[in-house]
Design a protein around this nucleic acid. Structure first.
Length: 404
RNA sequence: GCCCCCAUCGUCUAGUGGACCAGGACGUGGCCCUCUCAAGGCCAAAACCGGGGUUCGAAUCCCCGUGGGGGCACCA
């Protein structure tokens, strides 16, 4: 700042905040743009220096040229020309001796040999000032890149905490920690955000981080603002979940099962068998618990109405359950293939569709109306647990039948 | 109010003068597959903000509107 004062590019200003406020107020009344009126700019430099030496409180302002225009070059937008007359004499150094961003960032970047400055487009209005500072100091400018801001999903206003609600999830959020809690993968979030304002070509959308690092280029950045689309985040999350090796998926979903405080211990061996069943069925990691939580409960508690098969009575459903128990007891190797064969034969024998019978069994065994594939789930659960749950379903159904 | 930026389907985008009666993705609707739900496959609806130019020719270049966004602190 002192260097700029010495070279005539800046000057001390003794105006009080109160006077500044009054000037501003007057300008607003006259519908003029609020700007410093230049009182101290006209001071004799020697006199100003003396007042400072006497300990008078002052800030240092940039002496913005009154004439001409400043040409700033943004990599994405090209030349941005601004009339210097529309610029203010910005404060560079506060009266407490601390520099404001405008000065600090320029000096810092230069001293650290920064070659590319990538920042939000909210800096565009003060971009000419920054260029002027570089020029006044006689420094070579970095390459400037102003990234467009993200807009709220509605496209109204920039993304805010309040409006950044995940449509599909209800909770949403702009903090990565929020997104993480909701089961979003860091790589999916990166992929999603990378594609807002940037694209590689016409068809590539799925980017693992390594590909992103390899393919990203400043030149293909887009200067227009982008409204965030949370359903697209869901899509990318599903893509990245499906791209995960099983072991990695297990490691990712385990914390969500643990957080759910389920009845049975969360064993990795068990999760490893469950993972392939749910991998293509979940969009967020926390959904793994909704989908497969029943594996970690000793009993399930289905709604008795869900146990009744389509177009069937409770008594008929109970009968089907009992026959299924027999069929399952009769299966020699407790495998999904053997179970499926036995149960399909049973359905045919009972004159039921596979959908009818499996629907009843699904509710009885998983306690859910939506679940991973039934046969595979049964195989993982084991024969005794499956039979136990079916017997409980039988009893529940008999109660319903008796009540009718 | 003043200054700056931006402008292709609802959303993210491809498109840098002719290859575009505009392509992809998400979402939406339909069909197929199917034990539920997904995943997957196929199909459909859906856009060049408006007006002037420049040009043989404009989504692409220029101007003016309009719309949207951002900024106008001794914040960053």
């Amino acid at each position: 700042a002192e260097q700029l004062v010495a070279s005539g590019h800046a000057y001390p200003c003794f105006c009080t905040p109160q006077r500044l406020a009054e000037v501003r107020k007057l300008q607003q009344q006259r519908r003029e743009p609020p700007r410093y009126d230049g009182l101290c700019r006209r001071l004799d430099p020697a006199e100003a220096a003396q007042r400072r030496a006497n300990g008078e409180s002052a800030v240092i302002r940039f002496k913005t040229p009154r004439e001409g225009e400043t040409v700033s070059v943004d990599l994405l937008r090209g030349e941005i020309r601004v009339e210097n007359a529309s610029l203010d004499d910005y404060i560079l150094l506060k009266s407490d001796g601390l520099p404001v961003y405008h000065l600090a960032a320029m000096v810092d970047d230069h001293l650290m040999d920064i070659t590319h400055v990538l920042r939000g487009s909210e800096w565009l209005p003060t971009f000419p000032l920054h260029v002027l500072i570089y020029q006044a100091l006689g420094w070579e400018q970095p390459i400037w890149v102003h990234l467009s801001v993200f807009l709220n999903p509605s496209g109204k206003g920039k993304l805010s905490k309040r409006h950044a609600q995940g449509k599909d999830k209800g909770a949403g959020g702009v903090y990565v920690t929020d997104l993480q809690a909701q089961g979003y993968l860091p790589e999916a979030i990166n992929n999603w955000t990378a594609l807002m304002g940037w694209s590689l070509d016409d068809h590539t959308e799925f980017f693992p981080m390594s590909d992103l690092i390899e393919s990203f280029s400043l030149e293909r950045l887009n200067p227009s603002p982008a409204a965030v689309n949370f359903s697209k985040l869901d899509h990318f999350n599903g893509l990245h979940i499906r791209g995960l090796p099983l072991e990695a998926l297990v490691a990712r979903i385990k914390p969500y099962f643990e957080a759910a405080k389920l009845e049975l211990p969360i064993g990795e061996d068990l999760l490893l068998r469950i993972a392939p069943l749910i991998q293509e069925r979940i969009r967020t990691l926390d959904e793994a618990v909704e989908m497969a939580g029943f594996f970690f409960s000793s009993t399930v508690d289905p709604d008795p109405n869900e146990l009744v098969g389509k177009k069937m009575t409770p008594a008929e459903s109970a009968q089907a359950v009992r026959r299924a128990v027999q069929a399952i007891e009769a299966v020699e190797s407790f495998s999904s293939a053997a179970l499926e064969q036995g149960l399909r034969e049973l359905a045919e024998e009972l004159d039921l569709t596979a959908g009818q019978l499996f629907g009843i069994l699904r509710a009885a065994i998983t306690g859910q109306r939506v679940s991973p594939p039934l046969m595979e789930s049964m195989e993982i659960l084991g024969r005794s647990l499956v039979l136990e749950r079916l017997r409980q379903a039988d009893q529940a159904l008999q109660k319903v039948a008796a009540a009718e």
